[in-house]
Amino acid sequence: MNALAARRRHPAAIAILLLLGLVAVGGAYSLLAPKQAQASVVSAGDINTGKSLFLANCATCHGMNAQGSAAGPTLVGVGAASVDFQVGTGRMPLAAPNVQAQRQDTSQFTQEQIANMAAWVASLAPGPAIPGAQYTSGQNADVAQGGEIFRINCAQCHNYAGSGGALSRGKYAPSLTGSSGKTIYEAMLTGPQSMPVFSDSNISAQNKNNIIAYLKTTQTEQQVGGMTLGNLGPVSEGMFIWIFGLGLMLGCAFWLGQKAA
């Protein structure tokens, strides 16, 4: 072995070094990233506090009396469920004007503040109320029935496993992974943004609970086929096999073609 060979690096050295660097950066970020405090106290909602919160945070677009403006729709008659959905999922207050409000990991308000604003908006005109726990828990539900209703009413936009999908002009149906039963129920009840309304007179409360149970089951059940690749169908599966399957085959082909030392 001569001096040149002794100093030569192994061909995999760069790949391993890159991997180590990525793991180190990712690990450090997850340790040091700022975390949001979680509030979970729910109260009935004080209308006056709700109004002052509304004036401070929402009135710029929705108007001083929630009558709407050029920048935002009227909130008269949208009901408490709509406020709880939009603010509770962090979609409102809108971070920036865009084709569609995006779900955020955390809301900018506590549950109590949201309840106050919801109470004030609900006091303007009758609208859907925040659903109770009985039909949002996914308990005591028929999962198979929920799956059938989901596939007929929801799967065309949200994907058969609730992974979401694209609509026109940059709009999209969001992924339902990690959404709470209450959020899913409120979305069906109020029809936020592009989504149509599925009121209780269309899909009954019990059937909504069945849908929630189906979604919870698909997210937690054992994946018999192995890695789901996001449940996105042939696109992610094809990409996986093109990159990793063909990569492995190319590696074998190079090895086959190489002469033994």
Partner: peptide, 21 residues
């Protein structure tokens, strides 16, 4: 009829913005 429940639909059940299959 609603699919898959096969229950009849009242006109008053169909709120504005609703979709029925």
């Amino acid at each position: 009829m609603r699919d898959p429940e096969m229950t009849p639909i009242k006109a008053s059940d169909v709120t504005i913005g609703s979709v029925f299959h």
